[in-house]
Design a protein around this nucleic acid. Structure first.
Length: 277
RNA sequence: GAGCACAUAGAGA
């Protein structure tokens, strides 16, 4: 609102950034109104503007509406790109509609759009989340055969999915595979492994991996700490859990609502209501 | 010469 008074007018970047803000807040109705608003101000939305809105709709599960905006952008001569398709595929995956998501991938290929590593990762994550590992692996094969190198996200996704499905051997095979291919685990990869070990109550090993990640220069974040605190609480080791809470704060990592809920719940489940208070 | 404008993996209940 103030921009014109300051002698400049918002351009498509400004509008798209604001649009993204509305979408990230989940205010999708406002985002749709905003699309019309910017047009009324004489600013034509571009591919990024549409992608932003389409992703917002997809994240709300409104795939059909998202597709209608794909049609609209096409009618305005804005061709959907790999990000548009990735958003749609992600939306379908998050709804568990992996069948359709695979269909969209085939669709985009047949229309001459090349999926990239994010598109593939999105689909692999969706398939892993549904326990459809066979299909996830066939997508992995497809990306390899097309010359797309899996990245740390691809591998982390597979490791997490397989481990949570009890296929720890296979998960570790992928870990070794990624390392031998020259991809280093990052903080998320380490956290996935630490979580897997904590869930098996193997805290010692988990802490060994924690040391490993720190020595490789990856700082544990609020998720890493929360995972460990959860593992300790589930074993009733509240003093150690409290030590980690202190340690994370000391290390400049702010506990969040999940961290505290983890501790409070852990204590309450073990009848330690006083401590929780 | 200025804008990290949009998509993917990890925690509790």
């Amino acid at each position: 609102d103030k921009m014109p008074k300051l002698g400049c007018v918002p351009d498509v970047f400004s509008y798209s950034i604001y649009m993204d803000g509305l979408c990230k807040k989940g205010e999708i109705e406002k985002a749709i109104d905003f699309l019309h608003f910017m047009i009324s101000k004489g600013c034509e939305p571009n591919v990024v503007t549409y992608n932003t809105l389409i992703d917002g709709l997809c994240k709300k599960g409104q795939i059909d509406k998202a597709v209608s905006y794909v049609d609209e952008m096409i009618s305005k001569q804005h061709q959907p790109n790999v990000i548009t398709y990735s958003s749609l595929i992600n939306g379908l995956c998050k709804k568990g509609e992996t069948e359709k998501a695979v269909g969209f991938l085939d669709d985009m290929v047949s229309k001459g759009h090349q999926p990239n590593v994010v598109t593939y990762n999105t689909l692999i994550a969706g398939l892993c989340g549904k326990g459809e590992f066979e299909r996830a692996m066939s997508i992995l094969d497809e990306m390899l055969s097309k010359g797309h190198q899996p990245d740390v996200v691809t591998y982390s996704t597979l490791i997490d999915g397989l481990w949570k499905n009890g296929e720890i051997e296979k998960a570790m095979n992928h870990l070794n595979d990624m390392i031998s291919r020259g991809h280093k685990p990052n903080a998320v990869t380490y956290t996935i492994l630490i979580n897997g070990l904590c869930k098996k109550a193997e805290i010692e090993k988990a802490l060994y991996f924690l040391d490993g990640m720190i020595s490789k220069g990856h700082q544990p974040d609020v998720v890493t700490y929360s995972v460990i605190i959860n593992g300790l609480c589930k074993k009733g080791e509240f003093n150690k859990a409290k030590n980690f809470l202190d340690k994370m704060i000391y290390n400049g990592c702010q506990p969040n609502v999940v961290t505290y809920t983890t501790i409070i719940n852990g204590m309450c489940k073990k009848g330690e209501i006083e401590k929780a208070m």
